[in-house]
Amino acid sequence: MRRQIPFALVFIFGTFMVFQYFVPHETSEWIYEYLLDWIAIIGIFALALGIWSFYKVSVDKIKDKNEDWPYSVISLSGLFVMIFFGFTARTGESWGFYFPALLILTAGLGMFTMAYTETSSSKSKTSAMIGLGLIVVFVIISIMDNSWNFYFYTQEGLKNIAFISFFEHIMIPIQATMFSLLAFFISSAAYRAFRARNLLSSILLIAALIVMLRFNPYLGPVSGLMADGADWLINVPNLAAKRAIIIGIGLGIVATSLKVLLGIERSYMGKG
């Protein structure tokens, strides 16, 4: 029974999605829109599971005294601080005790984590007590201090300057830098293709060189046979192979979804 329900659901919702494509009527459209919204909403619940997994893995690293455990502390602090920013905002001109309070809260949570990861029970108890004390201090500060507030019901947190600066000065630069590393990696990949001396990688490399030369800035705009050749390469064989791949992928997708719908392919859902 427990095993059959999921597969029945897969079949029912899947077949509905197939049918709704042929039915333009608005009833079918409404249901279609609902289903897509539902997936997004379930996704957020899943994200909670994800954050839990992330927390657990980090804490376990600290507990096992994995050689990189201090970095897990950084991850967890980043996580807590950013969540805190997302749900708080300044009410007036000054920050008041916002940052000290945040520091105390983080320290308190850190103490709890330590209590959890500590092996000796007496030390663990002490840490828990200190943690509790810090949290109490934090609660008192947040009640007394009127220059900032928690916002669980309006989106003030997203407009919190601290939230935005963390986004702009931590996430954006790292993201852009990671992306820019591609420039190095593409060079090392080209070097790798150059070193591998078999027929297929030679074909790949020659095609890549022709296209790169076509747009090469040193010799000025390439024209004549060279340019025609590169353009032909892009427009003709490239097009043909892409078409073959797309048709193949299309069949693969159709076959896989069909196998999933009919319950022929079940390994995506564990047993038991």
């Binding site: 074909i203 790949l204 060189l209 790169m212």
Partner: peptide, 8 residues
């Protein structure tokens, strides 16, 4: 050939 062109 396609992969090469796309790479370049």
């Amino acid at each position: 050939i396609t992969f090469g062109a796309s790479f370049g």
